[in-house]
Simulated assay, not measured.
Amino acid sequence: MSFGDQNNPYGQPQQPAPGYGYPQQGAAPGQPYAPYPQAQAGYHAPYGAPLAPLEMPGSAKTARVMLYVIAGLHVIIAGLCFSMVAVFKKAAEETNGETFTNRNGETVDADTIFNTSKGVVGFLAVLALVFAVLGIVLAVRYAKGGNGVRIGSIVYASFGIISGFATVAVFGLGLATLVLSILVIVFAAKQPTTQWFRRPRH
């Protein structure tokens, strides 16, 4: 059988042999391969890096809200402490140098007691305000901060637990601070929160 002169430009073109040219199984020309799988929406993984969220996950948002609440509670605690300072100051002014005897039979100056109490409570009030400011700073940094913000939140919440124990007997707000601080540690330690703070930044 003759297939024609291969050098004849007017001859019938030859058909490619099976197994050559376009892939079999009905693949269309220009599409010899299946498309590459796309990354999940909202995630990217350059060069095999672990998937990193492009939007703050729910666990991080929850921890952030709780930090704001803890900071607000400490503002209230500071206000209550300052009001107690005013009470001690007024009491010291009304004693007029009076003295009384304690359980051990010792004579105690009332002015000294009230002034000492005023100083201690005033220090606690200032400390509560500082603690509130730190909580707000950490919460604000959740949007753009790195892993240090997450670690700082855990440390902050650890001190919040101590603060809750210290004020639970004096103010009912201490119990709320204690519970929220524990929850901040739980949500800050979750894997989605960790991935959020360790995400690549461009």
Rank of each mutant, 00 (worst) to 15 (best):
G21Y: 05
E55K: 09
L183T: 02
S83A: 15
H74T: 06
P192K: 15
Q6F: 06
Y10F: 15
S158P: 00
A166D: 04
N7Y: 14
F123V: 11
W196M: 08
F159N: 01
G21H: 06
A143G: 06
Q38F: 01
K144N: 08
L173C: 09
F3S: 08
G11M: 10
V149C: 05
F123L: 07
T116W: 00
G135F: 03
S163K: 07
V126K: 05
L183D: 01
M84H: 07
T177M: 11
G4K: 13
Y10M: 15
N147A: 11
P9L: 14
G19I: 14
I70M: 14
P53R: 15
A63M: 09
Q15K: 13
M66W: 08
R64Q: 15
E93S: 08
A125L: 05
G164L: 03
G119Q: 12
A91V: 05
R103E: 14
L178C: 06
Y156T: 01
Y47F: 11
Y33Q: 04
I182P: 01
A39V: 04
I113R: 00
T116Q: 05
I185R: 11
G72E: 12
V186S: 00
V130Y: 00
S181W: 04
H202N: 12
G26D: 07
V75M: 04
Q15D: 01
K190I: 05
S163G: 05
V65R: 13
T193S: 15
T62Q: 12
K118S: 15
K90M: 12
A86I: 12
G26I: 10
L180Y: 06
G72C: 12
V168W: 14
A63V: 03
A45K: 10
V130F: 03
F187M: 13
M84W: 03
V126W: 02
F114R: 00
T99M: 11
N147Y: 07
F100Q: 07
N7F: 08
H44V: 12
G164T: 07
L127N: 02
T101Q: 15
A91I: 06
S181V: 03
V155C: 04
F123N: 04
L80F: 09
I151T: 10
G72L: 13
A52G: 10
R64P: 04
L67E: 01
G119M: 12
S153H: 01
M56L: 04
H74F: 06
P16F: 08
N7E: 04
A60L: 14
F82E: 02
T112F: 13
P57D: 02
A125R: 02
Q14E: 07
P13I: 09
G30F: 14
G122I: 11
P57I: 02
G11S: 13
K89Y: 03
F100P: 15
V184R: 09
Q38A: 07
G11R: 09
A17H: 05
E55N: 09
N115W: 02
Y142F: 12
N102D: 15
Q6D: 09
P29V: 12
Y68D: 03
W196Q: 13
K90I: 09
T112Y: 08
V130L: 12
V133P: 01
I76G: 00
L124T: 05
V168H: 08
D5M: 09
P50T: 03
C81G: 08
K90W: 11
L173I: 14
G119T: 14
R103T: 06
G30Y: 09
A139G: 10
N96Q: 15
V168C: 12
V140N: 09
K190M: 13
V65A: 14
